[in-house]
Design a protein around this nucleic acid. Sequence first.
DNA 1: CGGTTTTTGGACTCACAGGTCCATTCTAAT
DNA 2: ATTAGAATGGACCTGTGAGTCCAAAAACCG
Lengths: 192, 192
Amino acid sequence: MTRKGVATRQRIVEGAAAEIRERGIAETTLDHVRARTGTSKSQLFHYFPDGKDQLLLMVARYEADRVLTDQQPQLGDLTSWPAWQGWRDRVVDRYLTQGMDCPLSGVIAQLGRTTPGAAAVVSELMTRWRSEIAAGIRHMQEIGEVDPGLDADRSAKALLAGIQGGVMVMLATGRIDHLEAALDMGIESLRR
Amino acid sequence: MTRKGVATRQRIVEGAAAEIRERGIAETTLDHVRARTGTSKSQLFHYFPDGKDQLLLMVARYEADRVLTDQQPQLGDLTSWPAWQGWRDRVVDRYLTQGMDCPLSGVIAQLGRTTPGAAAVVSELMTRWRSEIAAGIRHMQEIGEVDPGLDADRSAKALLAGIQGGVMVMLATGRIDHLEAALDMGIESLRR
DNA sequence: CGGTTTTTGGACTCACAGGTCCATTCTAAT
DNA sequence: ATTAGAATGGACCTGTGAGTCCAAAAACCG
């Protein structure tokens, strides 16, 4: 594949992701992607021979990566209480900005049970996300700010679940307060 | 509408709900619903003149009701720590049994942004669910088992978010541990 | 009963989205 | 410069699934 080829391919994935974010997964057709990215049918199937499902899977990967990179550098540096607060603000801000669209949830709802790859993308995202949070908790335990008796992994799971649910509630209702409550209470429960 | 009519209508909604639970929203067509419920095209459009979207909305309502009724009577009687534990087990059990399908999330992903009604169904579900949890917390405060300084609504929001996220993680990855961690830590944070 | 409305069956239409194909143009390497 | 392989344009095909329509059967009501 030539340089031009990879550029086109990338353009297609990003365009598809943007299109899905805007119109939702159910309403996005290949023609929409075509129009937005200025490509032809043949290009779509040239770069994604397995068709729409394959493209959607690539979009899922792309969006999954974004979820974590959008939280950096804060997520990777949970080494003080102000840092935790900064991360918390970052997460809230991201979803506030993004508004009521979660590209991933849509893609998963569509591919989830059929395509095995889609579930793997989310699984990996959750694992990485949780382990970053857990690392932060362990660091706080080491510097004596968190009870060393706490199960860091379990707390990370609960906190992550709270975030996910908070985002979900926001997507469905437009309200950010559940996400804030989950984050704040999750962090508070560490401090004691 | 005659008695026979309402029965048919009900049969269609329940059949559609079951079909969606089994095959997923993206794969469910009106013909599938037809086949399962033993109805004809004309019946579908007789009872749901606005077509598929209207039917889906009814399914969403039906499933939203089920979510809460499936948690009764425990959810309505959070009056002691064993009762909380019983509720927690009930929730875990329900989602464990149900497996990796959340009819609502799919329906929302499909209708969410387009149909205003779909978002309303979820909003109302969340509100009712949260207020039941909050009522439980307040009761525990009244009998002196929970710190009266705690903001019951805020705690309920966080706990609900944890449940939602736990379910979501389970749907995506098949793992129940996030849901358990969220529930357990949420309840623990009340006890102290 | 008789007339009226509701319910039902199923054939039909139609738009559209995914996917195929081939001809043409461009890229890059020798 | 030539040539093989990659990239592109766009016409075309096709299955399918939502939605329409009319006529027949059943239910209701006086």
